[in-house]
């Protein structure tokens, strides 16, 4: 088993390279990169300054000379073949250098590390809430299957599931923020956050957290609860539980001692992946509430064609995802001794 997991960890390296090579190559061949943008900007400037003496025909067609474009290509590393510049990028990455944003000219690592605490904050809060609520709720629903409690909570859970988190976010913004004006219209803290004392800061943060956190919860809530309920019901009707009951075990002990442990397997298959959810967050919810997390950073950098940032975000999120998968398999192996990875 240990050998299996060591092998899995070693396999992370080629997979990681595969992912990054793939996207790196794609970004190189798509129009709209930094050089095109600079040319377009220069063109615009030339158009605006067109009435000035410098505005000759050639300036309007191609504002930059070939030498200048060569220089730009060299600056952005576009003069080398894809694999060579990928190698350079990877080499720098190993030294902890993510490169510089081609849009904001900030170091990519600074941009990313500013966003990490925000995504971490929401990720951990929602993780605690989801597991803390879903597992007990799923158990209660399975045990009281077809009771009025089960039916009533199913309706609530389904309705919550039916609305994707970001749509619920918009709904909540319309109702609570725009119509009733109880909660803020987005962002993580108020504009005058710096002037507040500690207590007010905490309150302000909590006040801004309520709606986005609710949006985060709504999405993952139902899936986990239903998964828990369905698998537990499957196991409750299994022979070994009947045997245990027949031998005189109390219902409680049959559930918690036998059925529950087995029904945690499907939950465990996804547990490790939470590590990437924690950090990357949902860019849709972040966009709706205008929260500057990792998800929004990645999304905006793709839209802006800010490729060093795209690659940086991708490198971090894919690494987390890969490790998360291994953690998931470890969890499965821990909770289900029959599963043998060799």
């Amino acid at each position: 088993m240990a050998a299996y997991f060591i092998r899995r960890f070693l396999l992370v390296i080629p997979t990681f390279v595969g992912i990054t090579v793939l996207l790196f190559t794609v970004t190189r061949f798509v129009p709209g990169g930094p050089i095109e943008r600079i040319i377009a900007q220069a063109q615009q400037q030339a158009m605006e300054g067109g009435r000035a003496p410098a505005g000759s025909e050639t300036v309007q067609k191609q504002p930059l000379s070939d030498d200048q474009i060569e220089l730009l290509k060299k600056y952005y590393g576009f003069d080398k073949p894809v694999l060579v510049s990928y190698g350079l990028w990877l080499g720098k990455l190993l030294k902890g250098d993510f490169g510089t944003s081609t849009r904001y000219y900030d170091p990519v690592w600074v941009m990313i590390s500013e966003r990490i605490p925000i995504s971490l904050y929401f990720g951990i809060l929602s993780l605690i809430a989801i597991y803390g609520i879903c597992i007990p709720l799923g158990i209660a629903k399975a045990v009281r299957h077809n009771s009025s409690f089960d039916n009533a909570s199913s309706v609530v859970v389904f309705a919550g599931y039916a609305i994707p988190g970001w749509v619920a976010g918009i709904l909540m913004l319309i109702v609570f923020a725009s119509h009733w004006e109880i909660f803020p219209l987005g962002e993580l803290v108020s504009d005058h956050f710096e002037e507040l004392n500690l207590m007010q800061k905490v309150l302000d943060l909590a006040w801004h957290t309520v709606l986005p956190l609710a949006s985060y919860l709504i999405g993952s809530f139902a899936l986990m609860t239903l998964l828990m309920k369905n698998t537990l019901m499957d196991h409750l009707s299994a022979d070994y539980v009947r045997t245990a009951m027949a031998k005189g075990l109390t219902f409680k002990r049959a559930i918690f001692g036998h059925a529950l442990r087995n029904s945690l397997v499907p939950i465990a298959t996804s547990f490790g992946n939470n590590i990437s959810l924690i950090l990357s967050g949902s860019f849709l919810i972040e966009k709706v509430f205008n929260i500057d997390g990792m998800g929004l950073l990645g999304y905006e950098s793709v839209v802006d064609r800010d490729y060093p940032v795209v690659m940086g975000v991708l490198a971090i999120s894919s690494l987390l995802f890969l490790i998360g998968n291994i953690l998931s398999d470890m969890c499965v192996a821990i909770v289900d001794p029959r599963v043998k990875f060799e």
Binding site: I19, P31, Y299, V310, S317, S318
Partner: peptide, 26 residues
Amino acid sequence: DILFQRLIEIWSNVPIIYVVIIISSI
């Protein structure tokens, strides 16, 4: 299994929205 696991891992990591946005520019 191992081969497709690698493939899935590579594939799942290419965020679908990035691909759609990039393709929509072509």
